[in-house]
Write a protein that binds this DNA or RNA. Sequence first.
DNA 1: AAATATGTCAACCGCACGTGT
DNA 2: AACACGTGCGGTTGACATATT
Length: 377
Amino acid sequence: MVRPPCCDRLNVKRGLWTAEEDAKMLAHVSKHGTGNWTAVPKKAGLQRCGKSCRLRWTNYLRPDLKHDSFTPQEEEMIIRLHAAIGSRWSIIAQQLPGRTDNDVKNYWNARLRKKLSEMGIDPVTHKPFSKILADYGNIGGLVKSGSRIGSLSRGLKNVFTLKPEQYPFTPEGISNINSHLMTTTVPPKMEPNQECFSNNMYNNDANDNHSLDLLDQLQAIRLVTEASSTCTAYQTILAPCILDEGSLSSSSSSTCSTAAQEKFPTSFSWCDFLLEDEYLPGDHPRAEQENAAEFSSKDLTNQTPNPNVMIPQSVQSNTEVSAGVNGMGLALQSNTGSDDRVASSSPQHSSFVETIMDGESKIFLDFPNLLEEIFYN
DNA sequence: AAATATGTCAACCGCACGTGT
DNA sequence: AACACGTGCGGTTGACATATT
């Protein structure tokens, strides 16, 4: 059964709002507050659908909204979060005070996606195109085309959304999983500090965690969703190790705290958003490295160049890469070969469900501050 | 100067979820 | 349990502005 339209389209005005309509809306909200949007048009004297009124309010008229352009810090935040959780615009917007999901989504589509593409980075996977193509050549068709995996808020029912057209460079879907949902199972009650990344999560023992109880994982997904909805502390996302260090139990989280303190909140490079590969220098097209280096200095002219970024993984320790270069663990696929743990391409994963759960767990790693209070209270 | 292409962003659409009855 | 309703969300559209030819 198809649900009828929310309003009679013949009798409602559509399209851009006029100043007069805005004034009516503002007057109504200041008098009655928000809520019960279906009744708003009538009460406010507007020939609009209630849904349209709500949208106008939430996306434009709300007094707490910013209407100026995005700052470099906001750009970086969007990219980091997109790399971690994909296009969950509402969650991303919650970390950017004064921005709406629509703002973020438009900004991504209009600017950031293009910018990444011009850098040679697939904006979907946050991996270099060359790497994706290489993956494509190496994959034996284990996963059908364009599987979008993972959902924070829609539950398992919708964890797969097949939209092949979204992923022109990843017909096997693997790369998407690699980057957005880098698969590492995290016991929900594990201390969410960086040490977990470097010492526990990406060593061979990580596979043992796949036995994590399904219910625990479901609970974890729920919690991360709730946590993200309540977390408005943008700074804590930018620099969890700095701002939240005290709440972490990591008596030995020095790799995070020292390296990250040097970098955050403003000294990281766009190159940090590149998810690390197990590339060896010899495998890199030289031009790609140069391109990334060039971008690092060109686009962030007011930021400190990051000398670590272009250092080949093979000459850095995992710890340095994980905590130092990326701060938040977005590039934790270091030379331990994390791609090998990926999703369905890995024999260690028995099912897509496990893959999904692993992916969601990755978010814990990227944004531990989203969780810790809930978990440990 | 006009036509066309491209970029931006507000608004719309349809679906899913939560809640109340 | 089933349904209706309000709301939230992400994808898409289309109007308008600006750039290019």
